Amino acid sequence: MHSDQHAGLWLKTAAWGGLVFLHFPIVIIALYAFNTEESAFSFPPKGFTLHWFSVAFGRADVLESIGLSLKIASLATAIAMVLGTLAAAAMYRRSFFGKDSITLMLILPIALPGIITGLALLQAFQAMDIQPGILTIVIGHATFCVVIVYNNVVARFRRTSGSLIEASMDLGADGWQTFRYIVLPNLGSAMLAGGMLAFALSFDELIVTTFTAGHEKPLPIWLLNQLTRPRDVPVTNVVALMVMLATMVPVFLAYLLTRGGDDVAGSGK
């Protein structure tokens, strides 16, 4: 009993230590977002102010970058939800030659390093004589956002009993009615959770955006450029805090939608 308690204490200590290690930099950014001008570069902070929030949201470049990132993330998420759901519907029930290879190609963009994906997309766009811009960013983000939606939806499909669809058809429902009253209600939360995660991933994606943005400056690139401007550090911290909150909210909501084990999200068995 003593050894079990000792092991439990050790594991708890290691777990809390890992959490502190991961989140300490985030806490520092949050503290500096409220830091006074006089102590902007000192630690620990010597004052508390909301001045930098008004400065940040009064700058046109910040608002333009935020608006552009929201637009890109929304478009990429919409494309991913359509393609990811259709791919999941096509793959989950049918067995055919090459299915495993197609599945691998579907999930490959999320597994590849971002720099490889970005470089490959840039060369593909150049080969097709497509100039980098909003369109190329959206396409680049959609390539890995599709994977997020696909994984969520195909897991739900695997837990949707085929007998429900068969019963609906036997009772006289046509394809649209079966989809509307049987399939869609079962997929709704999985699609929404996948869309939220895809939006969060797209909103703060930097590496693929760097290769596909051209002259556009969405929020991640704006933040990267701010590193060369030390006097704007307080404003940068405020925007970084807003980005963290903007990505944490959809992730948390997706967690709430998909928690509950096999009945909701599926365990992949």
Rank of each mutant, 00 (worst) to 15 (best):
113 P>G: 07
116 I>Q: 08
133 G>L: 05
139 I>L: 13
104 L>H: 12
115 I>N: 09
127 A>V: 11
126 Q>M: 14
161 S>M: 00
150 Y>H: 03
120 A>V: 09
166 E>S: 06
151 N>D: 12
153 V>S: 07
144 F>A: 04
137 I>H: 02
131 Q>S: 11
145 C>G: 10
107 I>L: 13
116 I>E: 08
138 V>A: 03
154 V>N: 11
97 F>M: 13
132 P>D: 06
162 G>H: 08
132 P>K: 05
158 R>Y: 12
165 I>N: 00
154 V>M: 12
96 F>H: 10
146 V>S: 06
130 I>A: 01
158 R>E: 15
112 L>N: 04
157 F>H: 11
124 A>F: 10
100 D>W: 09
166 E>D: 12
107 I>V: 15
121 L>S: 10
152 N>I: 08
170 D>K: 02
125 F>Y: 10
112 L>E: 04
107 I>Q: 11
147 V>E: 03
162 G>F: 07
134 I>Q: 13
119 L>S: 14
101 S>F: 07
141 H>V: 01
121 L>Y: 10
148 I>A: 03
130 I>S: 02
140 G>C: 00
120 A>T: 11
168 S>P: 04
138 V>G: 01
131 Q>T: 13
122 L>R: 15
157 F>P: 09
114 G>E: 02
170 D>W: 02
147 V>C: 07
112 L>M: 08
105 M>N: 09
103 T>R: 14
134 I>Y: 12
100 D>G: 14
166 E>K: 06
108 L>G: 06
125 F>A: 05
105 M>I: 13
164 L>R: 00
144 F>W: 04
153 V>R: 08
171 L>W: 02
107 I>K: 11
122 L>I: 11
116 I>N: 08
115 I>D: 09
136 T>V: 14
161 S>T: 03
146 V>D: 05
139 I>M: 07
110 I>Y: 02
141 H>N: 03
139 I>W: 05
106 L>R: 10
115 I>R: 07
145 C>H: 09
152 N>Q: 15
171 L>K: 00
111 A>E: 05
165 I>S: 03
158 R>P: 09
151 N>P: 10
171 L>Q: 01
